[in-house]
Nucleic acid binder design. Sequence first.
DNA 1: TTATTAACTAACCAGTTGGTTAATAATTAA
DNA 2: TTAATTATTAACCAACTGGTTAGTTAATAA
Lengths: 191, 191
Amino acid sequence: MTTEEHILNEARDIFYRKGLAGTRMQEIADKAGINKAMLHYYFKTKELLFNRIFEQAFAVFAERVAEVLKSDVPLEQKIVDYVNHTVDALAETPGIPVFVLNELTFNPERITDLFAGKNKIDISYFKDQVDNQTHGKTDANNLFMDMVALCVYPFVIAPVFKRMLQQSDQQYKTLLQERKAHIINELLKRL
Amino acid sequence: MTTEEHILNEARDIFYRKGLAGTRMQEIADKAGINKAMLHYYFKTKELLFNRIFEQAFAVFAERVAEVLKSDVPLEQKIVDYVNHTVDALAETPGIPVFVLNELTFNPERITDLFAGKNKIDISYFKDQVDNQTHGKTDANNLFMDMVALCVYPFVIAPVFKRMLQQSDQQYKTLLQERKAHIINELLKRL
DNA sequence: TTATTAACTAACCAGTTGGTTAATAATTAA
DNA sequence: TTAATTATTAACCAACTGGTTAGTTAATAA
């Protein structure tokens, strides 16, 4: 692993937990076991280092969503794939959603860039697919929003749900895995 | 309006948009049109001022949820009330969810305090109610999580959904209002 | 009126923070 | 081998930040 990758890994961990403003360059340097000057040597500024981390994190979401909206598989399969892939991905790095949401809130101008050019994502193809298949019975916007909400929110609010549902870390993890089938079941009912 | 309330209002606006670490005491003072020393005169430290704002914000969620879990009305009515009240409350102050999620992520120890003593929230009564009424057909944990997720997440991710669904601010607002009926409809189907 | 308390301000301060610099070590190319 | 480039460090710095202080004005109580 190169020094650059090593820095990125430590920086990611800290940025995920403390955000841009709450993170200290010195802390990243310490965790990475290097001199603070090295951070600037490799990444110029704090913001540029943060951008690298953020873009990686955002891609996790964007890729899944883009796939659902564009790919040519049957609707049922799309939903099954989205739920399974998204929940599995978030189970690996549960800190991602809040990190991304946070940055988009603190720095809303970023959204314009994220959805520019080739990353332009729109729902129209998915919408047509839903309309054709359900003959207008199911609203595509709500189906899409529900699908994402049901998958992502339990990760976002994990500490609170864990408490309210009185689940240990391990129990909650299991619960989220079993939830995949529940979400798929509920969504497919509507088609 | 007292100076204290005035400070709280300006501080809330800035904390919601920038978080604890990203907010400067000087900026709050400027927006409130007072001297920075006044902030410390009224609230002692930045953290104490932040706590006041946070506790207010968290109460918005906690109250709705506590009501659902404890109150003695029929299940159907509970769900209708929760969805309507929650969406209406968030429509007024859409910045709240990310603000709260953020702080809970950056400062997880806080959760212990929030659910201590009289604020202790547990789902067991709600669970019994669901079990009795559906004879085990519907899982109470998932019903509860779905209910919250479907209401709150569209506010949390608003800027992204707005882009992907190609909705103006006004259109998205309307969409969220109309969504209330959709959410209620989907949830009641399961009972 | 006057003494006391509350509200408010300008100037200041010590600690922190992102970032720089000048010098050195390690690697690579000639 | 040697010249040149890359990687790394210790020390430093200017700007910023939360918080304080000493003093002033406004309101309240005696």
